[in-house]
Write a protein that binds this DNA or RNA. Structure first.
Lengths: 114, 114
DNA sequence: AATATATACATAATTTTCCTATGCATAAAA
DNA sequence: TTTTATGCATAGGAAAATTATGTATATATT
């Protein structure tokens, strides 16, 4: 995963995937890359080399289910959260928030958590 | 080595080091680990296996200067920012803030940047 | 018609960055 | 006197990205 200009904090990709699936029900890989690009105004680019292995791993861990579809003669693999995936999403979001709080305490710039 | 809870997102350690040195002028390694523990209320533990190589690398990149001291017959290596290090600190903090903003747009939980 | 771009998936090789485990050494506390 | 705290260091390995490929179809451009 690469940023428009800067670096990305590794470990956040899984959280992003889980949260997007939690919000939108089901998505396929390419759709995720485009959605992330759109939501961050091009700031964050999910590379395919990071995304697909991450999806496979989440599936192997039982957090995602797959459903294959063919649209316009092209393959799509739709992913959605399992029950375990929904629970894990809550944990990951909590961890992310804790990380943000910790970074705020360390770096205490002009932003904070509400 | 029992950690608080949350793991260090990869890429954040350098930012933490640079910012602490920027604020405090000069610090030695062990002092950094204790300061981080204190500021995050034990939530984040910087391991020595991560910290010392990171310091060495930042020094090799010309972002840090070292000064060796002996206190109570024990060795200390004080690190401080070079000029290049001060500039890089600004960049890293900006990247961190951009990362936070991006995560907010993606995950939009109940926190935001002020 | 030929070529480039967008859509859609995948993986191998490498790099970065961290953790675990271990080692050395001195000072202070139990 | 044994443990804990202070202080540095590195080897080995895991995790999670990047880079570089590869396959294939659909659409837009030249």
């Amino acid at each position: 995963m690469s940023m428009g200009n800067s670096k990305l904090y590794k470990g956040s990709l899984n959280t992003i995937i889980l949260k997007l699936l939690d919000e939108r029900g089901k998505m396929y890989g390419y759709e995720i890359t485009q959605k992330v690009k759109e939501l961050t105004k091009g700031e964050l680019n999910i590379t395919e080399g990071a995304l697909y292995p991450a999806l496979h791993k989440l599936e192997a861990e039982g957090l995602l289910d797959v459903e294959i579809a063919k649209v316009d003669n092209r393959l799509r693999k739709y992913y959605k959260l399992t029950e375990a995936g929904e629970k894990e999403t809550v944990n990951r979001l909590q961890e992310l928030e804790e990380f943000i709080r910790s970074m705020q305490n360390l770096v205490n710039p002009n932003w904070s958590i509400e």
